Simulated assay, not measured.
Amino acid sequence: MSVTTDIVQAWRRPKAVMRRHMDRPKSEPFAFSLLVAFLVVAFVSLWPFLSRQTVLQPEVPMVQRLVAAGLALLALIPFWYLLAAISHWIAKALGGQCGHYAARLALFSALLAVSPGLLLRGLVAGMIGPGAQLLLVDILVGLCFAWIWMAMLREAERSYAG
């Protein structure tokens, strides 16, 4: 199935999406492609805020801000792998049966699934700026991410060995 279909279905049935991913042959490039797709969307979601900052502080050019944001997102790749490993270790201590690959797949799928929320957050940050509205969107996107990720991780750790 397409990534966009997975994103829509992950909001309603994250366990089904995770089962479908786990039924595929094990492929580290596939899992990494989910992370890269998330990073691209996260980068795009920063543009409205960076544009706002450029208008408010014109001494720093937009290109410089975009390059810095892109490099910062790339620097986070090891963090996402570490977070997946830690989540697997915790799940394993609680009786999980799956390997690190499934934990990575669950995290990266959840990150990509919440990417429309990141786009909304970027628009709010760019159009309205800091305030109660941005905080509300941050909380909602964070809760949605946590729910989707935990559902996917629970499905992977409960159902699949390896």
Score class of each variant (00 low, 15 high):
I139S: 09
W47K: 02
R12W: 11
S159R: 09
I86C: 11
T54V: 07
V44W: 06
G70S: 05
P14N: 10
G96A: 12
I90V: 15
W47Q: 03
F43A: 08
L83P: 00
D23K: 14
P78R: 10
S159C: 02
L111V: 15
H100T: 03
Q64T: 13
L134A: 03
A132K: 14
L35Y: 01
Y160T: 08
V55P: 01
V141W: 01
L94K: 12
A72Q: 13
L123Y: 08
A16E: 14
A151Y: 01
K92P: 02
G162R: 13
L111M: 15
L111T: 15
L56P: 04
W47V: 12
F49Q: 15
S109E: 05
P61E: 06
L82H: 04
P25F: 03
G129H: 00
W11G: 06
S109Y: 01
F32M: 12
Q133C: 03
A91M: 06
T5M: 10
V137A: 05
S45G: 07
A156I: 00
G99A: 05
T54F: 01
P25D: 12
H88Y: 02
L74V: 11
F38Q: 09
R20L: 11
F108S: 05
A68I: 00
A72L: 09
L83W: 06
W11F: 12
L56H: 00
R158N: 11
A85P: 01
F79S: 00
L134W: 03
V55N: 05
A10G: 14
V44E: 09
V17L: 04
Q53V: 11
L136F: 15
V55R: 14
V41N: 06
A151H: 03
S109P: 02
V3C: 01
A16G: 07
W149V: 03
L112K: 11
K15M: 12
L50Q: 05
G126R: 11
L112N: 10
T4F: 14
V141N: 00
Q133K: 07
R12N: 13
D138G: 07
L135G: 03
I139P: 07
F108W: 08
L82C: 09
F145R: 07
R104S: 13
V67P: 02
L134Q: 04
L119S: 12
L118I: 00
V44T: 13
I77H: 15
A84R: 09
L153I: 03
K15Y: 01
P14H: 09
G142Q: 02
L71W: 13
M62G: 02
Q9P: 00
Q9M: 05
E59P: 09
C144K: 04
I86K: 12
F145M: 03
R52P: 02
L56V: 04
F32Q: 12
M1E: 06
L34T: 06
E59W: 08
D6Y: 08
R12C: 07
